[in-house]
Amino acid sequence: MIKKIIALMMMVMMSFSIITSIPAAHAEEKSAETIYQERLALYKDMEAITQVPWYWLAGVDTYEKGLRRARKDRDSADGVINIYFSPKEWAGPLNPDLNSDNPSAIALFDGIGLDGNGNGKASLKEDADVLYTFANYLSDYGYDDDNIQIGLWEYYHRDQAVNIITGHARIYKKYGRIDLDDEHAFPVPLNYNYSYRSTWGDSRGWGGRRIHEGTDIFADYRTPVRATSYGIVELKGWNKFGGWRLGIRDLSNTYHYYAHLSGFEDEIETGDIVAPGDVIGYVGSSGYGKPGTEGKFPPHLHYGMYRDNGYSEWSFDPYPSLKSWEQRERSN
């Protein structure tokens, strides 16, 4: 009861703050800086109301942003918050008006939608309402990391979703800001000798007929290999195809795969947070055999990218991203 009274008082106060702007302009009409500022302000406002740490809300929102990008059944967000609720989920499955923004009617039909800015409406088109609804859901489980993770599992019913969101939250907590997803680095330093071309989809024969799911960047042995994005090291070890390899999950839910390394950077371990340009390993020719096998092909970095859609992952061509990151880095 006390919690509800506090929440109501905070919502009244918020009615005089930034989040009461009705309805906000479409995100694509705003500058990137403005979008980041508005998002962070909303996360922190909702933390004040629900006690759910802002970086967890940012982690969820970022995960949902990646899902919107990867799936065809979700449109782009209308505002700056990317969390998705279907009209049935929001208004209630038996609600005859799935566009209803009446909180009483939504509650009557067991909808999840709540009024987050105190304007008397619970609208899917209001960023504050959407974010408050999810934050309120998480707050029912608790405010510490373990209970929030339980709440996330109960919502998504997928371990990988919880892991990805947890990684996003850890990154935001460490850096204290959210404008990180546009920063990238080319996988090898530009002052080293290297060459590459688009090789995604080429046929491969060793170990069975398959396609090449990545781009090969040829360079000398022990050329440094760098993280291309902010992310979490999800995987480290040996694979008979990729040799010594690392996997890093970034803030777009994309998994970056680095293979055929000659070795890893000292002390890098699974669970580590990395930033663009951090050295994570070194170019080699490992793979195509038991652990330690090397020299069956020229030294190079196999770089792959895999997109997560909330159900599964699939590879896509990393070459356009590599060219973009290389060109941007050369121009700086």
Rank of each mutant, 00 (worst) to 15 (best):
L8V: 14
M11H: 14
S15Q: 12
S21E: 12
E28K: 14
E28R: 12
Q37A: 14
M46P: 03
E47Q: 05
I49L: 11
Q51F: 12
W54F: 09
D61N: 10
K65D: 15
K65Q: 14
L67H: 03
L67P: 03
D73M: 07
A77E: 13
Y84F: 12
E89P: 14
D110E: 12
I112P: 09
N117S: 14
Y141H: 09
D144P: 02
D145S: 01
D145W: 00
D146M: 10
N147G: 05
I148N: 01
Q149F: 06
I150L: 12
L152D: 02
L152Y: 02
E154D: 13
Y155P: 03
Q160E: 03
G167S: 00
Y172D: 00
H184T: 12
P187N: 08
N193H: 14
S195Q: 15
R197F: 07
R197I: 08
T199C: 06
G201C: 09
R204P: 12
R209Y: 11
R210F: 15
D216R: 06
R226S: 11
E234G: 01
S252Q: 12
T254F: 03
F264N: 08
D266Y: 13
V274Y: 00
P276E: 04
V279N: 04
G284A: 11
S286G: 15
G295P: 09
H302I: 09
Y303N: 09
G304F: 12
P318T: 08
Q327G: 13
S331Y: 10
